[in-house]
């Protein structure tokens, strides 16, 4: 199972998470987002980039409540809320945004 982009193929698992996160790029993110029926806006990118930074620093994708708290601290209470994140990523911010960010499924997410 793989995403096809510009003649390259990028392996993913059965749920669509990228197998090798070092292969990620922003064009691929747009393609994964399309599969998720999400049109990427600046607000989506803010979350995706935030998740990638979190992963870089801590080597894990945060659970949703941790993401909410961390977003709140960095971007303020409006963006640091379940409502805001679910509006951007209706099928679960942690799951969908992590997938688009090329990260594994958040630890503790079943």
């Amino acid at each position: 199972m793989a995403y096809e982009l510009n003649g390259n193929s990028y392996d993913h698992d059965e749920e669509g998470y990228l197998t090798d996160l070092s292969k990620w790029n922003s064009e691929l993110a747009e393609l994964i987002a399309e599969d998720e029926k999400i049109a990427m806006t600046d607000e989506h990118w803010e979350v995706v980039n935030f998740l990638r930074e979190y992963y870089d620093e801590y080597q894990i994708a945060p659970a949703i409540r941790v993401l909410v708290k961390a977003m709140k601290k960095k971007f303020g209470p409006e963006k640091g809320s379940n409502k805001y994140l679910y509006e951007l990523f209706p099928y679960g911010p942690a799951k969908q945004a992590c997938k688009i960010a090329g990260l594994p499924k958040p630890t503790g997410c079943v």
Binding site: E57, Y58, Q59, I60, P62, A63, V66, K69, A70
Partner: peptide, 14 residues
């Protein structure tokens, strides 16, 4: 192997 020592610093967030 993945260096998971960085993850101990995420425990506070949890």
């Amino acid at each position: 192997m993945k260096n998971f020592s960085a993850t101990y610093n995420a425990l506070g967030d949890y």
